[in-house]
């Protein structure tokens, strides 16, 4: 539940911390309410699917290492919320339990359903003590192939950034390095928000074309989409941007 609220404001909240209006709209299947709930919970679920979790089955400890494939992650994220937003699921949600835990468990169940079919994703964790299945996030640790691939993708993106004009580089800096919202970035650049949206779309298109033109042959096979490790982010991108904007 949000802190720092007045008593009156608390009275307006449902037990799960949502506003009563949001809960009512959600139960009724109103688009605005469902959109707000999705935006509130999609990222934590996506991160769970990205980083994995440990669980126990038939007395044996396993670890789901997370989806290396962006496509697979999106596919399961989509299915998670599709199920969570079904009329029956919404009707069954009591508004008392935290919704994050509720939807995360749906995602976890989806992963576990494929357990038997895709055991390759679940290497045994030797030496770990069996415990009840938890949602503990696990670091995948270093992997030479992955690190090499990450470096290659980073180089590609760095090279792509070098092709951008100063306005586009400024947009990348504000939106993705400084983390400004579209609204704030628009203000900082003296542009309309729609212009920012259009520019971002153009940026994405240009990146995909660049990747197609330069990336297919250079990336090593077999470890696709293993990039995105938090440890590689931030400082590296800043350094890359520094290099191309210097």
């Amino acid at each position: 539940m949000p802190t720092g609220l007045t008593q009156a404001e608390r009275a307006e909240l449902a037990p799960n911390g949502w506003s009563k209006e949001l809960l009512t709209g959600f139960k009724a299947g109103e688009r605005a309410a469902l959109t707000e709930v999705y935006r509130m919970h999609a990222e934590p679920v996506a991160l769970l699917l990205r980083h994995g979790f440990s669980f126990e089955a038939s007395g044996t400890r396993h670890r789901f290492v997370g989806y290396g494939s962006g496509f697979e992650l999106q596919d399961v994220l989509h299915e998670t919320f599709r199920r969570a937003f079904e009329p029956r699921s919404r009707a069954n949600y009591d508004g008392i339990r935290p919704y994050g835990a509720y939807v995360t468990t749906i995602a976890r169940n989806l992963v576990l359903r494929s357990f038997r079919a895709r055991e390759v994703l679940f290497p045994l964790e030797d030496g770990e003590h069996p415990t009840a299945a938890t949602l503990a996030l696990l670091d995948e640790g270093p992997n030479p192939e992955r690190e090499l691939h990450d470096a290659e993708v980073r180089e590609l993106v760095t090279a792509f950034l070098a092709t951008l004009d100063s306005d586009q580089q400024r947009l990348v800096q504000l939106r993705f390095v400084e983390g400004l919202s579209q609204r704030d970035a628009a203000e900082a650049l003296g542009l309309g928000r729609q212009r920012i949206r259009t520019s971002e779309k153009q940026l994405r298109r240009a990146l995909l074309i660049y990747l197609r033109e330069h990336g297919e042959a250079s990336l090593i096979e077999g470890v696709v989409a293993a990039v995105g490790l938090p440890a590689l982010f931030g400082a590296e991108l800043l350094r890359a941007l520094d290099e191309v904007t210097r």
Binding site: G70, V153, F160, G179, L211, G228, F233, L237
Partner: peptide, 20 residues
Amino acid sequence: DRAIAALRVLEDRAVSRTEI
């Protein structure tokens, strides 16, 4: 998958806003 990987690097996120 490669496109998603690059978007994650571009956006500096483990999972990009674009894919969400």
